[in-house]
């Protein structure tokens, strides 16, 4: 968490990033950028999913609908913040010639999406019976 706060400062200070290490091959930087964009698209898809739950499941109970939508939106926020944080960490690791950082975020996101999916199945089945 402390590392995250230190990284937040670097998001806005590109000059400080350039001061350490050597500039990697530009193709590696571009690959890192594409990974960042892929995570950002995942975040936007989660946010779109939040809107979709709110809009296209009108017969759902209000608390369920708001809960699911907020869970998806929260996942989208986390995903986008993590995207820029991980991009910055990878960029710095490449400049210093270190191993790329490992992350448990993909596993975490998978579990959250699985839980939301199971919740949706329960809601739909309960809706049919009720």
């Amino acid at each position: 968490m402390i590392g995250f706060v230190q990284n937040v400062r670097l998001w806005f200070a590109p000059e400080e990033v350039r001061q350490e290490g050597t500039t990697p091959d530009y193709r590696f930087s571009l690959a890192n950028e594409r990974t960042f964009l892929a995570w950002l698209r995942t975040a936007l898809a989660l946010i779109g999913g939040g809107f979709a739950v709110d809009q296209f499941l009108p017969h759902l109970g209000r608390s369920w609908r708001i809960g699911l939508a907020l869970a998806l939106l929260g996942a989208g926020v986390l995903c986008s913040l993590r995207a820029v944080n991980h991009w910055m960490r990878c960029e710095r690791a490449m400049r210093r010639g270190e191993d790329l950082p490992v992350s448990r975020f993909p596993a975490l996101l998978s579990v959250v999406i699985a839980v939301v999916a199971v919740a949706m199945v329960v809601v739909v089945v309960a809706g049919w019976e009720g």
Binding site: T23, E33, F36, E91
Partner: peptide
């Protein structure tokens, strides 16, 4: 390379 400012 992409500037951190724009990514942020």
């Amino acid at each position: 390379a992409l500037a951190p400012r724009w990514a942020t």
